[in-house]
Simulated assay, not measured.
Amino acid sequence: MIIVSTDGSCLRNPGGAIGWAWIAHEGGRFDSGGAASGTNQVAELTAVLRAIEAHPGGEPLLIESDSQYAIRCSSEWIEGWKRKGWRTASGSPVKNLELVQAIDRAITQREGPVRFRWVRGHVGNPFNERADQLAGLAAQDWAAGRGDVGSELLPASPAGDAEPETARRRTAAPAPVPAAGATVTPAASQPSGRPAPAAEPQWELGTLFD
Rank of each mutant, 00 (worst) to 15 (best):
S74D: 02
Q101P: 02
A173L: 15
T108Y: 10
I63K: 10
G57A: 08
G15P: 04
P60L: 08
L49W: 15
T6I: 06
P93R: 11
R12G: 06
L134I: 05
A199M: 03
G27A: 01
L205Y: 08
S90N: 10
P93S: 06
A188K: 08
A47D: 09
I103V: 14
E79R: 12
K84W: 13
R83G: 05
G145Q: 02
S189L: 11
A143Y: 00
I63H: 03
R87Y: 05
P195T: 08
R120W: 08
I63W: 10
R170V: 11
H25M: 05
V119Q: 05
G112Q: 11
V42R: 13
P201F: 06
E129G: 10
S157C: 13
F116I: 04
H25S: 01
A199G: 08
W77C: 04
A156D: 03
N128F: 02
T183Y: 03
I78D: 04
N13P: 04
S67Q: 05
A54M: 02
A36N: 12
A175T: 09
R29H: 13
Q133T: 15
G160Q: 02
R110I: 07
R120I: 02
G19W: 03
A167Q: 07
P158Q: 03
E204V: 09
A135W: 03
P56R: 02
A106T: 11
R115P: 00
G160P: 01
G27C: 02
W22V: 07
H55S: 12
V48D: 07
E165G: 09
V42E: 14
R194Q: 09
P174C: 00
R110Q: 07
E79D: 06
W20R: 01
A35F: 01
G80H: 05
E79I: 13
W22L: 08
L11T: 04
A180M: 06
A54C: 09
A175K: 08
R83A: 12
N128Y: 10
N128Q: 07
A175G: 01
R87Q: 14
I107A: 12
G27K: 07
I103P: 07
G80Q: 06
L97E: 15
L154C: 01
A89T: 14
